[in-house]
């Protein structure tokens, strides 16, 4: 039964985080400071994903299976 609780609640939590700002910023005006910071999400996130894959491929394999 644990597994179903985990799937349903975990799904709800994950969806909540995905929906959070889409919902919130749809109702509020986005402050200029935040707009500015948000422009750096793509370069920061994409290279944070890519760098370890480029340079640490073997480590990555161990980590993704051992957890």
């Amino acid at each position: 039964m644990t597994i179903w609780l985990v799937v349903l609640l975990g799904g709800l939590v994950t969806f909540g985080m995905r929906f959070s700002f889409v919902w919130l910023l749809g109702r509020l005006e986005v402050p200029e400071t935040m707009r500015r910071a948000l422009r750096y999400v793509p370069p920061a996130v994409l290279s944070a994903i890519v760098f370890p894959e480029l340079f640490l491929r073997d480590n990555h394999l161990d980590l993704s299976l051992s957890r």
Binding site: V6, G10, V13, T14, M17, R18, F19, S20, F21, V22, L24, L25, G26, V30, M34, R35, L38, V41, P42, V45
Partner: peptide
């Protein structure tokens, strides 16, 4: 689950102005 998926809040904020 919550900690691993935390990064989706960044994606959410980043996409929000477009949606």
């Amino acid at each position: 689950i919550a900690v691993i998926n935390l990064r989706h809040m960044l994606y959410s904020a980043s996409l929000a102005p477009h949606l």
